[in-house]
Design a protein around this nucleic acid. Structure first.
Lengths: 148, 148
DNA sequence: TAAAAAGTGGGGAATAGTGGGGAATGAAGA
DNA sequence: TCTTCATTCCCCACTATTCCCCACTTTTTA
């Protein structure tokens, strides 16, 4: 279960040191792999490989001649990259993924239960501004009576 | 059932000593965990972990490609951090959570039944000012017949 | 066509800052 | 007066950041 937001820096090569407290949960036993891909909201998604595979299978089972389905396939699977933590707990974010999410030096790693989202700092702030500016309207209709 | 408002100080590292009278109720038997997260009204929410989990499950069951749902997920789960009371009954409020709620040294811990809210002193005062300036209009329609 | 230069990235280490853990102290309550 | 508790501050370990060496690949130049 990944949660919490952490401010991090990318190094000069575009590498990200995954916070020490999340490393074991991310890679599990035997240092399993990770998958980094693009999200339609212009952030990146970081999954344990085992959590990603069923998602990719579901996406690729969509009809590939359907325009909407193929757009999603190209985005989510087209951008997906296998990676592993190095000895210092870092992953390399490739130039195409950095460009897609407009990542510069300062980024936010945001836990979302089964995976993390990776945002540029500006992108993250824009998300927060949007969430906070909407007040009650942020709740979808099916959660109209939701209480914290 | 958490109630009462307490003025507290954060220490130099951003830690908060939970008032002794609330510690057992918050952590229950066997020192169970807590969850601290963000609220759209720019305060923080402190829940026993067991009370938080159903809320998080409900939030994460929303469709994650839906823009409105994902804004809520990013705020509530993105900011949610697991924590435990240390030997002196303290919890560490991370820099991103402190920034979100504009917490400085003086804070207010405010019981809200199932959880606590944590406010900056200025934020709390603004809430009081707003509540008191509205007089009777502060009641939502469904509580029109409410009496103290 | 071959050599040189530039770019990219693996791997690692030094260091400043963060945070775990604890203790002293003064205030408040019993 | 004694006990409890919140505040403040300290020691020390861990971690994220920054920077470096080196190797390989690609591009540019002679």
């Amino acid at each position: 279960m990944f949660r919490g937001a952490t401010a991090l820096n990318l190094d000069a090569k575009g590498r990200l040191a995954v916070p020490a407290k999340h490393r074991d949960a991310l890679t599990g036993q035997a240092g399993a792999g990770l998958v980094l891909t693009a999200h339609p909201h212009r952030c990146l998604l970081l999954y344990p490989q085992s959590a990603w595979e069923p998602i990719q299978q579901k996406i690729m089972s969509l009809p590939s001649l359907d325009k909407q389905a193929s757009l999603l396939q190209r985005l989510l699977v087209g951008f997906a990259e296998d990676m592993a933590l190095d000895g210092a707990g870092r992953v390399l974010v490739s130039p195409v993924l950095r460009e897609f999410a407009a990542l510069e030096k300062q980024v936010m790693l945001v836990g979302q239960g089964t995976h993390f989202e990776l945002w540029s700092l500006d992108g993250w702030r824009a998300q927060l501004d949007e969430a906070l500016s909407q007040g009650a309207q942020v709740l979808p209709p099916e959660m109209g009576d939701f209480s914290l």
